[in-house]
Amino acid sequence: MRLLEPLLIPLAALVVSLLLFGVFVALAGHNPLQVYHSIYRGAFGSWFSWQNTLVRASPLMLTAMCTALPARVGLIVIGGEGAVVVGALAAALVGIGLNGVFAPVAVIGLMLLAAMACGGLWVAAVGALRHYRGVNETISSLLFNYIAIAILNFLVIGPLRDPASLNKPASVPIGSDNMIGNIAESSVHWGLAYGLLACLTLWLVVRRSTMGFAMDVIGGNPRAAYLAGLPVGRLVILACLLGGAAAGVAGMLEVAAVHGRLSSSVNAGYGYAGILVAFLARHNPLAIIPVALLLGGIRASGGLLQRSHDLPDATVLVLQGIIFLVILASESLYGRTPLSQRPGVTR
């Protein structure tokens, strides 16, 4: 029965948050049922809405990893935003530099590698600072975000600016041949596949490999891990590296699937939402997939809420906040519900 807990508790929490949100919109003078219906319609109500949701979910899967993986070794990293920016920067530089030099397949592959390497190293630095210097990783990753964004803005408006980009400063394009297209006839770009693949691969790493097991030991009890002779430092940095690499891919997708060039908009705000996804998925890479879909759906429905109910765009922020808070509060229920047959033995 305890196996049901990880499924039922979040579902119950979701229902509770929707009820609370219903009270909120009712207080604001709207009919909650109609609002629910619009959220459903905007997120999952039709194939059009599904595509809308999917295209938002893929970067969330990748940025969530930047918080989820370090969390497995006990670090709370909020540097997804910075890794996205650095990944985008690396991908754009490679794309621009190699445009026309190599075949598109090779350029895309190299952009991917560069984004993974740079995003990964960016966050690995946070892990290394934590491990070797005791620098608080939450704060340093936050600062890394601001620094990455400042560097991006500087480059886009200065050295990398394409003079032809008139009213929106941007770099020269990476070339339309080097762009990642959409899946079949849909309007969802291939980034979705990247996101799913990353979630599955990292789930295997976390759940099925010795390394993943060692990471969990470190996350559970670092002293025991030391005593057991685990290479704690290496694993901590590796977890950050993998997380950062995933977020770097999200940045590469912004360049290669959405914008086709570098501009300040490649920082599309998926970094902070990814933190939310990671915590809601309890840092489980596989659970990140449905949570990212849910969050992507909520964000996708924001526009419809504005247009059909005249609700401000902040409505979806409030909804996300409520869901986040309720699900976090529900963490305390694990092992305490009637479903857990032998209370007291858990954890």
């Binding site: 905007g42 809308n52 914008h259 908009s265 599309a268 526009g303």
Partner: peptide, 15 residues
Amino acid sequence: ENVPETIEVVKTMES
């Protein structure tokens, strides 16, 4: 309102 200059605006237009 508050539609960023990202894929969000693509989706808003299509929507």
